Amino acid sequence: MPLEQRRLTYPEVGATAGALPDGYDHLVRSRTIGTGDAVFHAAAERLMGWEMHRSAGIDVRPTAQRAAVGARVLLRLGWGVLRIGAACEVVLVLDEPRRQGFAYGTLDGHPERGEELFCLERRDDDTVVLGITAFSRPAAWWAAAGAPAARRVQERVTQRYLGSVL
């Protein structure tokens, strides 16, 4: 199915910005990536332009050069016949002087249902922190059958994101 015809697969759109919904696995991770305005702006450019994802080893095929509400992206992980495609739509953008980021939600065909938020924050002490918040549950039968392995993959990819924002 073409990316533009796919629909969001969960009703709690935007929930990564607040209390995470019941009935899903939750993931909340963060890492201090540096200090100061230059670090914050450089990291925001990489995040909003999909470079953080690419640096984490994800094949990124977005419909827009920068993350924007309504933009869609096909994320592909793996190689050859083991390559998994994950279609998402940006559902939230943070564009504040001390916070930048976005959340995307799963579309039809994604092996999971849920949402993931990537948020850069420049705190009062000038440290710059990347936070990742997600809620998800299996959507595909094979994702449900391999749920423990899928959680490990999600944790590994999250750690790669946290290490690749700069």
Rank of each mutant, 00 (worst) to 15 (best):
V60E: 04
T106V: 06
G57M: 08
A140M: 12
P21C: 01
Y104M: 11
A15R: 13
R160P: 14
L47R: 09
A44T: 08
R122T: 10
S30C: 13
I84Y: 02
L94D: 15
F102C: 10
P11K: 00
V69I: 07
M48C: 11
A140G: 06
E121R: 13
G109V: 02
G101V: 14
V39S: 10
R66N: 09
D22I: 04
A86R: 04
G70Y: 07
A86D: 12
P62H: 05
F102Y: 15
R113G: 13
L117N: 09
S55D: 06
A71T: 07
A144E: 07
R98I: 11
Y10R: 00
V28I: 08
T32A: 12
F40A: 15
A145K: 02
G14H: 08
V60A: 07
P148E: 09
W79T: 10
L130C: 12
S136G: 06
D124Y: 05
R98W: 08
P111Q: 02
L3H: 01
A15Y: 11
A43F: 03
R151P: 13
P97H: 05
D37S: 13
G131R: 12
D25I: 00
W142T: 01
A68I: 00
R66D: 08
G131A: 14
R54F: 03
A103F: 08
E4I: 01
L94I: 08
C119T: 12
L162K: 00
T32N: 07
H41T: 14
Q65V: 15
E4P: 01
R113Y: 10
R122A: 06
P2N: 14
R76A: 05
R54Q: 10
L107W: 00
G78A: 04
A15G: 13
G57T: 14
M48V: 03
